[in-house]
Design a protein around this nucleic acid. Structure first.
Length: 678
DNA sequence: TGGGTCACGGTTTTT
DNA sequence: CCGTGACCCA
């Protein structure tokens, strides 16, 4: 199995003990190397159960598992290969009692978290609260610590909401995604014996996409390495594009210092792209300061030159690309080998319209995930209530869905009374006669609630007798599909519901001894339906394209203000890494497209070509303020009110560009976005 | 309770 | 331009 590896890949694969950093450039056979290493360790007689491989996404975990299992003979206890979060979940199912909590906790997603935050506080924007709290959790800061570090009023407020939020989670035995890692770390930190035991259990640890790890994940890995130093990480500092979400590029940059005696192996041979493409990608990334330094070499030969498109506007741009795509398809190119990438999702709109007009089949990657859809979350909430009487959170979501006339006032009353009696809402309704309930919520509501309760209990009984009958009964009892029939997008939603029912049915068939609760656990960390392979070209953000490859790649929006979207400091370096990721997705042909103007946020903006084109050595020139603005001295411009004028000077004004303009004798300072070039 | 209107703000996204 | 959230009225 080592025979198919090149020298550096093989060196990495046969490294057994001690810390190892594999710096794997784009397309350098990263997955092949670590799956081979996994198989190699097993071939040495190392217990597979003592090898742990961690990834960020389910997709990566699945792919790696498939490839690794191809290399190893059937074994009884396969090595654990999962996402960080799944690992946390497995750990907490065993150990959360150390924090005085029960292991029937419910995992909430971002949406749920926002709902809770909204309930706690309505003044501060929930998305800010959500991301700040997540940031603090990943920095392992408690609300008290947040309060301390800043005098800022907003932060005092955030700290207070954070505090209440944590209390709410605890009270309802909820766990958010961050908790899966944070609580795991906490337990390992507070209980040395468990840390040692866990570290002993996983003697060999591998981490994929190490450049994307955050502070908490780093600390967690340190704990897992308590009794050994066998940590092998794979990553590419040049592909770190998640800094904005807490990824700490220093983790990979400083790996050799933090893990003493670490060996570094660079994989610089690229099997994916032609040297034409790689050369320009290398040129571009060379402009970054914070990097370990590596240079990809193509083994494929020169290939086609990188193509540049310059268009007047987005419609023009779309037309050119659509034409190219049509030609490729006519020449027999597989649609799955073509992708169009952009920095900002909003740019897909013009593309979609154009491709619809040109009747080219496409798929939009990213966007609303299956399990985030309202109807699916409703179903999950129902199932959670059916399996767990204590899940107030889910109960509140579905108690009036389909509408039963139970409004927020009634729900509030119920909750207050239930809390008073230290009971869940479900138990409260269950244990009181209709008459008693009526004292709190009125006769009509009391009856409705009793009927609802009885239906849930019926379903619990049916579930115990026949899992297969349960699904049909469920929909019948609650008229669930019927409810969505009268809502907007009904066809889509019903199709989703059917798919979900089908998925559950399939789960029951495949796993005869598992129940509904197991199913809920299984899907709690899944975000996307395993991509249905469609024969269509792909459109997606550059972020979404990481890890993928296509023969033909188009990158649109190569303009200042779109790509790079931000043009300063560390952020610019991350933009450049994004550029590097985008370019290196292409195997055979890379086409970069820019426009003179784009319609965005309700107005048309004049644009200049991206500096990345010159940095990559594709066009002449360097960067100056005049170049970022599309306007220069002596240009004639038109203003809606002031009419025609001549530019006397160009100046930077924060994010915008200020122009000094002479309108027939009257000189004015106008922001560039308010005038048009003639 | 729900529908209708208005103001506002608008990278990137996985678990 | 277009989606979301707040607010008001029937």
């Amino acid at each position: 199995m080592l025979l198919t590896l090149n020298a550096s890949q093989r060196m990495a694969a046969v490294h057994v003990d001690g810390p190892l950093l594999i710096l794997a450039g784009a397309g350098s056979g990263k997955t092949k190397t670590i799956t081979t290493r996994l198989a190699y360790l097993i071939s040495l007689g190392i217990d597979p159960a003592s090898i742990l491989t961690l990834t960020f996404t389910n997709k990566a975990a699945t792919e790696m598992r498939n490839r690794a299992y191809n290399l190893i003979d059937e074994i009884k206890y396969p090595p654990l290969l999962c996402t960080f979060h799944k690992f946390g979940l497995l750990f907490l199912k065993f150990h959360i009692n150390k924090l005085g909590r029960k292991n029937n906790f419910v995992i909430i997603d971002n949406d749920d978290r926002k709902k809770i935050l909204k309930m706690i506080d309505k003044e501060v924007t929930t998305s800010i609260l959500s991301s700040e709290i997540s940031k603090f959790k990943n920095l392992m800061m408690t609300s008290a610590e947040v309060k301390q570090i800043s005098e800022d009023k907003l932060y005092a407020k955030i700290a207070q909401v954070y505090d209440q939020y944590e209390a709410y989670l605890l009270k309802n035995n909820l766990v958010d995604f961050d908790d899966l890692l944070l609580l795991t770390y906490k337990i390992l930190d507070e209980h040395k014996d468990i840390a040692i035991e866990t570290s002993k259990r996983y003697q060999y640890i591998m981490v994929d996409e190490y450049q994307d790890t955050n502070e908490l994940q780093y600390k967690l890995l340190k704990k897992l390495c308590t009794v050994h130093n066998n940590l092998c990480v794979v990553g590419d500092d040049d592909q770190s594009i998640y800094g904005w979400r807490g990824a700490n590029i220093k983790n990979i940059l400083n790996f050799s210092e933090t893990f003493e005696g670490a060996m570094t192996i660079k994989l610089e041979e690229n099997y994916r792209s032609t040297s034409e493409i790689l050369e320009h990608a290398n040129n571009l990334i060379d402009h970054n300061r914070d990097r370990l330094g590596k240079e990809l070499r193509s083994v494929r030969g020169k290939g086609e030159a990188v193509k540049l498109y310059e268009s007047n506007d987005e419609n023009d741009e779309t037309r050119k690309i659509a034409e190219d795509v049509k030609k490729l398809l006519m020449n027999g190119v597989h649609a799955g080998e073509i992708a169009i990438l952009y920095r900002v999702n909003a740019l897909s709109r013009a593309l979609e319209e154009g491709f619809n007009r040109a009747r080219i089949n496409y798929k939009l990657v990213g966007g609303m995930k299956f399990y985030e859809r309202m109807e699916i979350k409703d179903l999950i909430a129902y199932f959670r209530v059916i399996t767990n009487k204590n899940d107030n959170f889910s109960l509140k979501r579905i108690i009036n869905k389909p509408k039963r006339g139970i409004g927020p006032t009634t729900i509030d009353k119920l909750e207050v009374e239930a809390i008073n009696l230290k009971k869940s809402i479900f138990n409260f309704i269950e244990e009181h006669e209709t008459k008693e309930l009526a004292n709190f919520v009125g006769k009509k509501n009391a009856m409705t609630l009793k009927v609802f309760m009885a239906s849930i209990k019926d379903l619990q009984e049916i579930l115990e007798n026949s899992k297969m009958r349960f699904i049909d009964f469920f929909d019948e009892v609650f008229d669930f599909k019927e409810f969505y029939q009268n809502q907007p997008d009904s066809a889509d939603r019903i199709a989703n519901i059917d798919e979900f029912y089908g998925y559950l049915r399939d789960f029951f068939i495949q796993n005869i001894d598992m129940n509904l609760e197991d199913f809920l656990n299984e899907i709690s960390l899944k975000s996307d339906q395993d991509a249905i392979e469609e024969d269509a070209i792909s459109m997606m953000s550059i972020h979404a394209s990481k890890g993928l490859e296509y023969q033909y790649v188009f990158v649109i929006g190569m303009e200042e203000g779109f790509f790079p979207l931000v043009a300063e400091g560390n952020d610019l370096e991350e933009e450049r890494r994004l550029g590097y990721v985008a370019f290196t997705r292409a195997k055979d042909r890379l086409t970069l497209s820019s426009v003179h103007s784009r319609f965005y946020k309700g107005r048309r903006t004049q644009l200049v070509r991206s500096r990345f084109l010159s940095e990559a050595g594709l066009i002449e020139g360097s960067f100056s303020i005049e170049k970022t603005s599309a306007f220069k001295k002596d240009d004639i411009v038109k203003h809606k009110i002031f009419g025609m004028g001549r530019i006397l000077g160009v100046q930077k004004a924060g994010k915008d560009i200020k122009l000094h303009i002479n309108f027939g004798g009257t000189k004015r300072d106008i922001l560039a976005s308010f005038v048009e070039k003639i």
